[in-house]
């Protein structure tokens, strides 16, 4: 939500509007931000059928990378590259399991037997998955719970 960031030069302060309007840099008076009550909900989620796919989070698996790119290594950002590419990590020997992925996403845990670099590369790979790629539906189910 970069439009909320205050990184530009100062501009006119007469932006009457929503609570998320920009504040001029260096303004003497900062914009008040409504935090809401701790118990109130600030999210409304629209959940399409795809997100309700009944795949079990415990049993579904994601090959990293997908079979079409089998053998490829992964850069930190999740890009698949040829084996032994500088700065890339080895892919997991087996598909990652739903529960492991969940633990990594929610609790910051490492995949069994991997380094933090590997875990980050694997997670970033999965974050880039798109509809039609192997593992996408499993990942959607894990994210949507």
């Amino acid at each position: 939500m970069s439009e909320d960031r205050i990184d530009g030069p100062a501009h006119d302060a007469d932006v009457a509007g929503p609570a998320t309007a920009d504040v001029p840099a260096g303004a003497s008076r900062r914009r008040a931000l409504m935090l809401g009550a701790a118990g109130a909900s600030m999210v409304v989620t629209i959940r399409p059928a795809l997100a309700q796919t009944a795949t079990s989070v415990l049993t579904c698996e994601i090959p990293v990378p997908q079979p079409r790119q089998s053998g490829g290594w992964l850069l930190r950002d999740g890009t698949v590259v040829p084996p032994y590419t500088r700065g890339a990590v080895r892919p997991p020997y087996q598909p990652l399991k739903g529960q492991e992925i969940r633990d990594a996403l929610m609790n910051g845990r490492l995949y069994p037997g991997t380094t933090r670099e590997q875990t980050q590369a694997y997670t970033n790979y999965m974050l880039r998955l798109q509809n039609g790629q192997s593992g996408f539906t499993c990942f959607v189910s894990i994210r949507a719970k």
Binding site: A19, L33, V43, N131, V140, R143
Partner: peptide, 25 residues
């Protein structure tokens, strides 16, 4: 941003979220 709410389409989960302040911040 629409009327002070952030509308976020989250591609990895296929879900769309309507967020009130201070979540976008």
């Amino acid at each position: 941003m629409i009327e002070g709410f952030a509308v976020v389409f989250h591609a990895p989960s296929g879900m769309t979220h309507l967020l009130a302040p201070p979540l976008p911040e």
